[in-house]
């Protein structure tokens, strides 16, 4: 799941400085799950913006709405009439949703309300950790289900490096050494010998190194069948 965090209010207020009426647009997808941009957070931001601008004596008219998912144009189409009424849209969706929003409403300013942090897991209420970097070529089969790309600070493939101390990473004592985790898990499973095989240099062309990525599946495309 995508993990995001609300931007500091100062930043948001600066974006909206020149506007009189804005739409705060929440998203019912990942950002609801990670408590950053669901209906509740939308309401909280609405209230906070109203009070902040009232304090300055320049009231801001805020409309709030939460759509199912901002990364689909169809859901955004549902609020097109609301968007016409406002000066700008403040999107609380992840980076994907914000961009989709900007694309869907070319005539309007669309401001980001959250910082999109990473792809991760929800460890507990209020606690998230990175698990995937969407590198495009999964190696979890070779590493006991623990990703060296996302979870090793150096993303090395034949670890651990010399900075692994007592199962922790030298970058931060709060970070587990991914290679220590990989070793522990494989040895528990009796598969530790598989680590003797030296992994070749990773082909990063599937990742960002090949430029922005796009996925097309002709078997599913609506036009291609015709």
């Amino acid at each position: 799941m995508i993990i995001a965090e609300r931007k500091p209010i100062d930043e948001i207020l600066k974006f909206l400085n020149k506007h009189q009426k804005v739409l705060v647009l929440g998203c019912g997808g990942c950002v609801t799950v990670c408590l950053a941009g669901g209906e509740t957070e939308t309401g909280i931001l609405h209230s906070q913006l109203t009070m902040a601008r009232n304090k300055e004596g320049r009231p801001l008219d805020v409309i709030e709405k939460t759509v199912e998912r901002q990364c689909d144009f169809e859901y955004l189409a549902g609020v097109r009439h609301l968007v016409k009424e406002v000066d700008a849209v403040l999107s609380l969706a992840c980076g994907i949703g914000i961009q989709t929003c900007a694309e869907a409403f070319p005539e309007k300013l669309v401001w980001p309300g959250v910082n999109t942090k990473f792809l991760g897991v929800n460890l507990n209420v209020g606690e998230w950790a990175e698990r995937c970097q969407a590198c495009g070529h999964c190696v979890l089969d070779k590493t006991g289900g623990i990703c060296p790309v996302a979870r090793c600070s150096k993303s090395i493939f034949n670890g651990p490096c010399g900075g692994s101390q007592g199962g922790k990473c030298e970058v931060s004592p709060d970070t587990d050494c991914a290679w220590a985790l990989i070793y522990d898990r494989l040895s528990r499973l009796g598969e530790v010998d598989s680590l003797r095989e030296i992994m070749p240099v990773k082909d990063w062309s599937f990742s960002r190194d090949g430029g922005p990525r796009k996925l097309v599946r002709e078997d599913l495309e609506l036009e291609s069948g015709q």
Binding site: V33, L35, N122
Partner: peptide
Amino acid sequence: AKCVVCLTCYRC
């Protein structure tokens, strides 16, 4: 219709 089964309530 609004529940995204995020487990927040379940955990709390």
